[in-house]
Simulated scan of single mutants.
Amino acid sequence: MGRSASHPRRASIRLFLLSEYPISREGLRLLFASESGFRVVGSAPDWADAARGRRSDVVLADVSQAGAADRGALRRLIILCAPARVIMLTSTLDHSHIFEALRLGVRGIVDRRVTAQLLFKSVRAVAAGEYWVERNIIADLTQRLHAEASPAADLPRQRRFGLTDRELHIVSLLIVGYGNKAIAVKCGIRERTVKQHLTNMFEKVGVSSRLELALFALHERLVVADDLGRPASMAAR
């Protein structure tokens, strides 16, 4: 009688919960305990205790509107939790607060009103190294990314991370909201070639999504304002 092949068991995602409300911490603990692939390793009521979450993979922080607007507090939270990745669980935020949180290092923004399955999906994505934001704010984020690009005079392009001129051009189009098809038309190449360039760039700079690539490019000052054309949403006007 043959022996069935054994498969290595995937390690559970280690979660640390931050919330000032005991009922929120307990509710989240029970929720993740009901789903395979997660293990809550601790919780705390105060951001000052966030350092306890360092040994987790993801810190799920229940953040108030005021907390999300406190830039200094968010920065301290990211530093205290590192190398764990932080997801903000919050009510509807002003898009400027979302953009600033992502710039500071928050890896996910999740509305408290989402379903359990969507919350699980967001945690898995962030644990895998991706960013997580709601689709309805992507367009606004690309506009803000465009506005944040540095003037050409400020940027001596010394660190290119192996990116070619073509790839830098594609990043600049990505930032202002062009999709793959529009980028292909703009560059005079095939859409599948654009996809291959994106895959190559993901590997070169160590990211896994278009949003992450755009944020990385601006953080590392790879793209300057002079590189950017009009946003795709304005091109048809």
Rank of each mutant, 00 (worst) to 15 (best):
S4M: 15
R9S: 09
L18K: 01
S19P: 03
S19N: 02
E20D: 11
R29L: 15
F32R: 00
A33P: 02
S34E: 09
S34W: 04
E35N: 04
D46A: 12
A48P: 01
A51D: 03
A51N: 01
G53Q: 05
R54L: 14
D57T: 05
L60T: 03
L60F: 06
D62I: 00
S64F: 13
Q65M: 10
A68G: 15
D70K: 10
I79H: 10
I79Q: 12
C81Q: 02
V86Y: 11
L89S: 04
L89E: 03
T90Q: 02
T90S: 14
T90H: 03
S96P: 00
H97W: 11
I98C: 11
F99Q: 02
F99P: 02
E100A: 14
L104E: 10
V110W: 08
V114C: 14
T115P: 03
A116K: 13
K121D: 07
S122Q: 08
E130Y: 13
R135G: 10
N136P: 07
Q143E: 14
A149Y: 08
A149N: 09
S150K: 13
A152N: 12
D154W: 14
R166E: 07
L168A: 01
H169I: 01
S172K: 01
L173V: 01
I183P: 03
I183M: 11
C187I: 15
E191L: 05
R192P: 00
R192N: 13
V194M: 13
V205A: 08
V207D: 07
S208W: 07
R210S: 06
L213W: 04
L213Q: 04
E220S: 13
L222Y: 03
V224H: 11
D227L: 11
L228T: 08
M234S: 09
R237T: 06
